[in-house]
Design a binder for these strands. Structure first.
Lengths: 331, 331
DNA sequence: ACTTCCTATGTTAACGCTAACATTCCTTCT
DNA sequence: AGAAGGAATGTTAGCGTTAACATAGGAAGT
């Protein structure tokens, strides 16, 4: 079915330039000594024939495929889309391409994707928020010459890790609320499967006294789930004066619930979110939240991976702290 | 630098199973006749050695690389991120991977990216909203066995095209406004470089009488640029009772400008946007706008490309219509 | 002049796989 | 029994590139 147009090969160039294939290869790769005159002649032919090296063949002989894999749970999620943008930028700077794999939170698919990437001989993988079990992960990651895990710890050898300091971020939010005089804080916590939800919850527990009656869980964090959770929580704990939410969407819902409950934000109760999505600064009152520059985060992640690929001593474990964004909902 | 662990090859399997490499290849590919007994034996060895075919080598001999390229101007833009998610889903169904390339609106980079993808022997490319000039595009696209252009026409041979019916969508918005009794409509039009901005403007001009005094241009469509443009327009045309905006962000800004101007939405003036971003249904008044299911659009785009790759007669030109989403800002 | 030692280039084989052709060994038919 | 034909498997070569080794030719030293 696929009809590929015949490509110009090194052999073609060699014939026209009247040298051996190896000489052409050397010219292309700037390797060994080549007489300037020969180099020029070869270059001219390359130009005339519009020759470009076949990367597939190169990958077969050489040690590199100049391709990395990026595995995300959902590329349609702006969080991962922006990280991916950052990764792609750095990859391109290193003359690399990115094979993007969306797992849709399915660990089985994640496993298949990894095997496929290995079969395609990628030089490294970046795995964002994997849903794979601890006992599966190391074996899979160790297939790759280099790998980097975002927001997940692992025992795999040679795996670098970049973590968001979710717990620390929530601690800062709590401290900010307490500095503002808030004394009775509740939390709307996220789904149990996700690493960050667990970390944020841990942060809240360690910063407060961790009374479980002050915590309400939601499986997926959206405006309406945040709304309902806040309603439940406020019914149970009417005297709350601060509310920490797993993310901004939940916080938006929670604010609406507070107002429905006759509590003004931030007058009667302060509400904070996490992530600083665009909506956070567009609603009223504007939301106090945590921010990370996700594009820069992606660049940092990619740089860490390429350090590994290039054999430099990469940072085994890097922790990225959130920035506290103070707005009207918790001034 | 890169140390790849030695892979199990067909030769290894062949040796252990005591057959020729070709027989193993046949078993893997379900080709030709194989004695059931032999097949079983080979399968067992494949399983024991955990053999997986090397896709790079396959690509070199075979006609397919089982990889497509997706070129977008900005993957961090949710519009393209969701389309990409749809594309990836379908690609995976076809046992394909996606090389994602972000061009950041730079035509030079786009050209380089295409050459790279060709060198990596992708079986097809999807190009979203290219910024390349008409005289460059065909030559580049014709390098690929299959290609699909989103939101851009071209004279390239064998290029399929999927277009959004932007103009028709705006016409429908205008008709909706007029059906609601609005008589004097203005427009905030988008940047000149983008195809869709041009199409939306054309739609507006053809549906109204196209008085240029009623149109205000912004280079990049954001809330604040929409706000400013609406202010300028309202100062010039105080009696407007309907405002069509290039996209939702601009519309949000425009609504704010209307209110600043003492005009209520939708009482005094109706405002409509385009794209149906999440914010559209979250602000007050909720925004009337045009919607396209972007994930489904991505799936459709990918299916079109794979039809081409698989040699079926693909649809040369497909036009996708928006759906009118009527909300409070223009009921 | 002869060895030595670079510099510039060539030759061969291999990467892992499969297309294309070749061979072997049955079965079936006359 | 011998021919014919199909099923099962093997052999060879090639995809485009580069690593590794081989060779030619010239400059320099003795």
């Amino acid at each position: 079915m696929i009809r590929r147009r015949r490509r110009v090969t090194i052999a073609d160039v060699a014939e026209v330039a009247n040298v051996s294939a190896m000489t052409v290869s050397r010219v292309i790769n700037n390797k060994d000594a080549i007489k300037p005159e020969t180099r020029q002649r070869v270059m001219k032919v390359i130009d005339e024939l519009d020759y470009a090296p076949n990367h597939i063949a190169r990958s077969l002989t050489g040690s590199r495929s100049y391709t990395i894999g990026v595995i995300v749970v959902d590329i349609a999620n702006p969080f991962f889309a922006e990280i991916t943008a950052g990764i792609e930028t750095v990859a391109w700077q290193h003359h690399y391409n990115v094979i993007l794999c969306n797992t849709q939170e399915d660990p089985r698919r994640e496993r298949q994707v990894m095997r496929m990437l290995e079969a395609k001989q990628v030089d490294g993988v970046i795995v964002c928020s994997t849903r794979l079990a601890d006992d599966d992960l190391p074996r899979l990651l160790e297939m790759f010459p280099a790998c980097l895990l975002f927001n997940r710890e692992t025992t795999a050898k040679d795996a670098n890790v970049v973590m968001l300091a979710d717990a620390a971020g929530i601690v800062r939010l709590v401290e900010h609320l307490e500095a503002g005089g808030r004394r009775r804080l509740g939390m709307i916590a996220g789904g149990s499967r996700s690493h960050s939800a667990q970390a944020r919850l841990d942060g809240f527990r360690s910063a407060t006294n961790g009374d479980d009656a002050l915590i309400e869980h939601i499986e997926t964090a959206h405006i309406h789930t945040g709304f309902r959770a806040a309603q439940t929580l406020l019914a149970r704990q009417p005297d709350l004066d601060g509310l920490v939410c797993h993310n901004d969407l939940a916080a938006v819902g929670a604010m609406q619930a507070c107002m429905t409950h006759g509590k003004s934000v931030p007058g009667d109760i302060a509400v904070v979110g996490c992530d600083d999505i665009p909506l956070a600064s567009l609603i009223s009152p504007k939301l106090t939240t945590l921010r990370v520059d996700r594009r820069v985060l992606g660049e940092l992640i990619a740089r860490n991976l390429f350090a590994h690929i290039d054999g430099e001593q990469p940072t085994r474990r890097q922790v990225i702290r959130h920035q506290l964004v103070i707005r009207d909902s918790a001034p």
